[in-house]
């Protein structure tokens, strides 16, 4: 038999296939363990969801806080400006010109020379002199343009109430207006008298 013959001489027949059985690879223990489990997956996804939600809420709260901080900072800034403005006003009211003008408006005069009492010996030293009179005399010679229009305190003739009147830049006095700071004490008999407590 030639090789050809050998080839051709094979019987032409369908090979009979045996019916295949369904086979499945049995998972090893490690494979079984590696299989995804539902519960942990749900927990993880849920956890991520919760984290995202918390983060969202946190950032909302933080943003809210940031606006609050910003608001407070700006309120503080405003308060500082207010404080500056008030201390500026206070410095002006405390200026010697304003104090002297007020003192004279209230009828005060400069004191005379002081006497000294020696507490040990009871001796009095110094020479007393009469009150020095008006300091401003012919007017305030030490200018301060900032004081133009600043109110002077005056004593209302009919009572103990302090009133303020506005002095314009030329030194004229406008009608006084009661500021309502008057006490409830008795009205002094002498017009122009300073209100003072009675002491014993």
């Amino acid at each position: 038999m030639t090789a050809l013959a050998a080839t051709t001489a094979r019987p032409l027949r369908q090979p009979v296939e045996a019916p295949r059985r369904h086979l499945e690879v049995a998972p090893s223990r490690a494979q079984r363990r590696a299989r995804p489990r539902l519960l942990p997956a749900l927990v993880t996804i849920g956890g991520i969801g919760v984290i995202l939600l918390v983060q969202l809420l946190l950032s909302i709260v933080l943003a809210d806080g940031a606006y609050q901080i910003s608001g407070l900072q700006s309120a503080k800034h405003d308060a500082v400006l207010q404080q500056h403005a008030l201390s500026e006003q206070l410095d002006l009211l405390a200026s010697p010109q304003h104090l002297a003008a007020n003192a004279e408006a209230l009828g005060m005069v400069a004191s005379g020379s002081a006497l000294y009492l020696d507490a040990k010996t009871g001796a009095v030293t110094g020479t007393g002199t009469a009150a020095g009179g008006s300091l401003l005399g012919a007017g305030d010679q030490v200018g301060n343009v900032l004081l133009g229009g600043t109110a002077l305190v005056t004593v209302k003739a009919s009572g103990t109430g302090m009133t303020t009147s506005t002095t314009d830049s030329t030194g004229g006095t406008q009608a006084p207006t009661d500021t309502g700071t008057g006490g409830t004490g008795q009205a002094p008999q002498t017009p122009g008298l300073l209100p003072s407590p009675t002491t014993h």
Binding site: E88, S95, P96, N144, L146
Partner: peptide
């Protein structure tokens, strides 16, 4: 700048 005491 402000000079609260004016000419003092």
């Amino acid at each position: 700048r402000s000079y609260p005491d004016g000419a003092v």
